[in-house]
């Protein structure tokens, strides 16, 4: 694939840098890149917990009082979130926002929500794209909406023409096209070093690691990942977890459960058609998949 006829663009979206690359420089490809960025911006407007004016924030404000009709995209992401919560026996849970807010990873207003112990089981998806909570809770789609945004962006690009490409939103990467693409991961012990770990064709790989995201709180470094069983953030580590799946939503959501369960993740990964790679300082890359 030559570089002369490719386009590569980046914009600050979803709190990170979103990069889109396509192997075409046609006007159709240019227009598709704009449409793809617009789709990602739309996901941010709908589902960001950081924005007080997002649909998600409105849902958080009143969802425990009355059913709220939401955008089809928000409904789809919630349905996928609950499906993955079920498949991982609650290790993926998008109601852990208060624990993240307490550590400064999310706006402080989300700390208040969530008296008692709400979980993903308190989210009810009703007919007519309506959502209701069984109790007051703070929903945060930060662990899954980015993947969904990547998938929507890829859909816009694929609809525009027969070219290959990739969308990378802060470590949620999806490639499409006829050829397998080499995939590099950052070495969690030294993130400026890249390891070539494999190749991927028409699929997604999402990575969670604390090398950039960790914060120092009360003398210890913590990662923006919550263990739903303890409702507290986990300690920052020199480990990165990457999940490989057909779509970026699935890959994105599963990085958190794999971060918690490590090699014990093989079963739920298989249930979701996924596998994982764990990179740990001082150890060779470890692939986690159910034995065939």
């Amino acid at each position: 694939m030559s570089r002369s006829n490719s386009l590569r663009r980046a914009r600050p979206l979803l709190g990170t840098f979103v990069e889109i690359r396509v192997q075409s420089d046609s006007p159709a490809a240019e227009a598709a890149i704009l449409a793809a960025f617009a789709a990602i911006a739309r996901v941010e407007r709908l589902m960001s917990a950081h924005r007080a004016d997002s649909e998600l924030s409105r849902l958080n404000a009143v969802g425990h009082v009355e059913a709220v009709e939401v955008d089809p995209w928000t409904y789809d992401v919630l349905a996928a979130a609950l499906r993955i919560s079920g498949a991982t026996d609650g290790l993926f849970d998008c109601t852990v926002a208060p624990a993240l807010a307490r550590q400064g990873f999310l706006p402080r207003r989300l700390q208040r929500a969530g008296s008692g112990h709400p979980s993903w089981r308190d989210i009810l998806l009703l007919p007519g794209r309506r959502v209701r909570f069984r109790r007051r809770l703070a929903l945060d789609l930060g662990g899954i909406a980015k993947g969904f945004a990547v998938d929507e962006a890829v859909a816009r690009l694929r609809a525009a023409g027969d070219f290959a490409g990739a969308v990378n939103a802060g470590g949620d990467l999806r490639v499409f096209g006829p050829a397998a693409e080499p995939i590099h991961l950052r070495d969690p012990a030294e993130p400026r070093r890249l390891l070539r770990v494999g190749s991927l064709k028409d699929g997604a790989i999402a990575t969670s690691a604390s090398y950039f995201a960790a914060r120092r709180r009360n003398g210890r470094r913590v990662a923006p990942i919550v263990d739903p069983r303890r409702r507290t953030v986990i300690a920052a580590s020199r480990r990165s977890v990457s999940v490989i799946a057909a779509d970026a939503l699935t890959a994105d959501a599963l990085t958190k459960p794999v971060m918690l369960e490590g090699p014990g993740s093989a079963e739920f990964l298989a249930r979701c058609g996924a596998r994982a790679l764990i990179l740990e300082a001082g150890a060779p890359p470890l692939e986690i998949r159910r034995a065939a």
Partner: peptide, 8 residues
């Protein structure tokens, strides 16, 4: 081209 890994 494809750096999978957390970005800033």
């Amino acid at each position: 081209k494809n750096i999978g890994g957390a970005t800033l």
